[in-house]
Design a binder for these strands. Structure first.
Length: 178
DNA sequence: CCCTGATTCGC
DNA sequence: GCGAATCAGG
């Protein structure tokens, strides 16, 4: 049956090899494969014995990682679920013009949409807005790419659209550390 | 702070 | 075998 993507099927392994040898970073590959973290990718890469990529022989590991006690979370489910996005929002096919004007639709209140550069799946990273733009079946497909809210898949603007019910979201002050 | 790969080790 | 936690570095 369908593989949720959490297992290393032959196809996935091959894609992993391809992308890795292709020079993509572990996080990029993880994003491409889906349902896996970059750690999983790196771990697999090493297990497959293709670490080092193109580069070879490097300063011998003098003092690598120390055996710190790894107290893992009791049972962390899925860190990030592959957002199905808002099924209601139907993207305009955009028949012509590759990536010209931006769909500055919903200008609800005062927020002016400072459209950032759109990005392809390859450049899409966890910290970037995953709001789809265009036709997913076309190579011109892009994602918003703006800085996403930490913990959410969208930028502030698209998050407001995606999470309508949220009447008033106070700016989240995330304290790193004092 | 963002990111990169490398390593250890509980599962 | 897998990958989270952690490390070390850019």
């Amino acid at each position: 049956m369908m593989d949720a993507g959490g297992t290393w099927t032959d196809e996935r392994v091959e894609l992993l090899k391809k992308l890795w040898t292709d020079g993509l970073s572990a996080s990029q590959i993880a994003a491409e494969l889906g349902n896996v973290t970059r750690n999983a990718v790196i771990g697999k890469v090493h297990r497959l014995g293709l670490s080092g990529r193109a580069k070879d022989a490097k300063p011998a590991a003098s003092v690598a990682a120390r055996p710190r006690k790894a107290t893992r979370a009791p049972s962390a489910p899925a860190p990030i679920a592959p957002q199905p996005h808002v099924s209601n929002v139907v993207m305009a096919p955009i028949p012509l013009q590759p990536v010209a004007e931006e769909p500055v639709a919903y200008v609800e209140d005062d927020i002016a949409i400072p459209m950032s550069e759109r990005v392809t799946i390859m450049d899409l990273r966890e910290s970037m807005c995953r709001w789809p733009m265009g036709d997913p079946t076309k190579p011109e497909f892009r994602f918003c790419g703006a800085r996403s809210i930490t913990g959410l898949p969208y930028c502030t603007h698209h998050a407001r659209i995606a999470y309508q019910p949220v009447a008033d979201r106070k700016r989240e002050r995330k304290l790193a550390r004092a």
